Amino acid sequence: MSLFSFHPRWCAGLALLACGAAHAQAPVPQQETVHFGTYENDSFFDSDRFYTNGVQLSIKRSRDRRGEFAKALTRRACAWLGCEDSVFLTSQTNYGQLMYTPRDITIAQPQPEDRPWAGLLYVEHAYALLSPDQRTLTTLSAQVGVTGPASLSEDAQKLFHKIMDRPEPRGWHNQIGGSLALMASAERRTALDSLSLALPGDVQLNTAGYWRLAAGNTMTYAAAGLAVVVGKDLPAVSPPPPGIGNKLVQDAIGTTTCMLKWLQCTAFAVVETRLMGRNIFLDGRMWRDDPSVQRRKVVTDLMVGTRIDFPDTRSASHGPWFLQFKVTRRSREFRSSIPVPRHRIAAITVGTEF
């Protein structure tokens, strides 16, 4: 079986990544805010298990609206991370819900050898800071949320399954209990010249290496990864998801087209390995008798995707609409006496600028 097995209609979308002749777009006014929503689900691969669903609404801004307290916190963090000379690039607020289930959601009894039922409802805020040479991007984020019944994951899944006429989830009374979930993280992403090159047709292939540290009662881990982005008019280091940062710069200029005059495209591939110290969705709450499984200490994600912009959809009230599609293949996250397969998730992101 191939690394990623997905429907043929998705392949047609990925085929747009073969960029053709350049057609320069006219300069466009600066956009200060981007709104986008992301829907992740494993049902794209005909499964309903493990990390089974995620939804997130995001608002990204280019204007620096930090108060004195937030500026002091970022200065202190940068003194430790080595980004004191970096300048504000964007801020981003995320509102989302995550949902985790065992493989068979129709079993009402506890399933101690399978992944626990769990949910998270959260809000997250992040600041992106760019170095003076525009080759290193530092992202600082903080997340606060709730687990257990207050996450509304049970209500959301049951409603969705009822509407879509799918099997009723019957084991949510076994979920990891309610708690205040906190997590802070820092990431450094640096352009790698030795792995970047110019391709025919004014196409760029940019490679960046990154590391991330996260700590909290939600998750604690250390991660390292390599990200490759292919497209036109790319910055040296692209913030994830690739392309959105391009729209939030002073004197913004529209990127060149892909194969068609009314289409712009960017492709990306990422490999990331995490050394896990804690995961509330596998370990349960600290000092509580929650369902849990034996967490694997090393987890690897392999991601590929494409972002497509539609420049002709720009109007006087908003910027162009865009669509991003991403596929993730995740290694086994826990050990059990029953077989634990690798997991695949697809994510669709849709948004526009205001």
Rank of each mutant, 00 (worst) to 15 (best):
R332Y: 03
Q324C: 07
R295V: 11
R330Q: 13
R314E: 10
T306L: 06
R296W: 05
Q324S: 13
D301M: 12
D309Y: 03
G305P: 02
S315F: 09
V299R: 02
R332H: 07
G319C: 10
T313W: 12
S331V: 01
K326N: 13
T328L: 09
G319W: 03
R329L: 10
I345V: 15
P341G: 06
V340S: 03
I338A: 08
R342E: 15
S315V: 07
V340H: 04
V299G: 00
F322N: 02
R295D: 04
H318Q: 13
G319H: 08
F325P: 02
R344P: 03
Q294L: 14
E333T: 10
V340A: 12
D312H: 15
K297N: 09
S315E: 05
V298K: 11
F310Q: 10
T300Y: 00
R342K: 13
D312Y: 10
R296Y: 03
A346N: 03
S337D: 13
I308S: 00
I308A: 06
R329V: 14
R332V: 08
I338T: 12
R296F: 07
F322I: 08
E333N: 11
S331D: 02
L323V: 10
A347G: 12
R296P: 05
M303N: 06
F310Y: 13
R344I: 04
K326M: 11
H343C: 11
S337L: 12
I345Q: 13
L323W: 06
H318A: 06
F334G: 01
R329M: 07
R344V: 10
V304D: 01
K326V: 14
H343N: 06
R335A: 09
V304H: 03
W321D: 01
R296C: 04
H318P: 05
E333C: 11
I308G: 05
M303H: 02
I338E: 08
S336V: 08
V299D: 00
R330W: 04
R330I: 08
L302K: 07
F325Q: 03
G305C: 04
T313M: 09
R314T: 10
R314C: 11
S337V: 05
I345M: 15
S336D: 09
H343L: 04
A316M: 03
K326Y: 00
A346I: 05
F325E: 00
I345K: 15
M303I: 13
F325K: 01
P339E: 02
I308Q: 05
A347R: 10
L302W: 05
P339F: 05
S336F: 11
A346G: 15
L323H: 08
R335F: 05
R296G: 08
L323Y: 09
R344K: 14
T300G: 00
E333P: 06
A347T: 04
L302A: 09
R307K: 15
L323D: 07
S331C: 05
A347W: 02
T300S: 02
A346S: 15
R332I: 07
P311R: 12
V298F: 11
V299F: 00
T300R: 03
S337F: 09
V299K: 00
P311K: 12
V304Q: 01
T306P: 06
T313A: 04
R307E: 15
I345S: 12
P341Y: 05
D312R: 09
R307S: 14
T313N: 09
S315C: 11
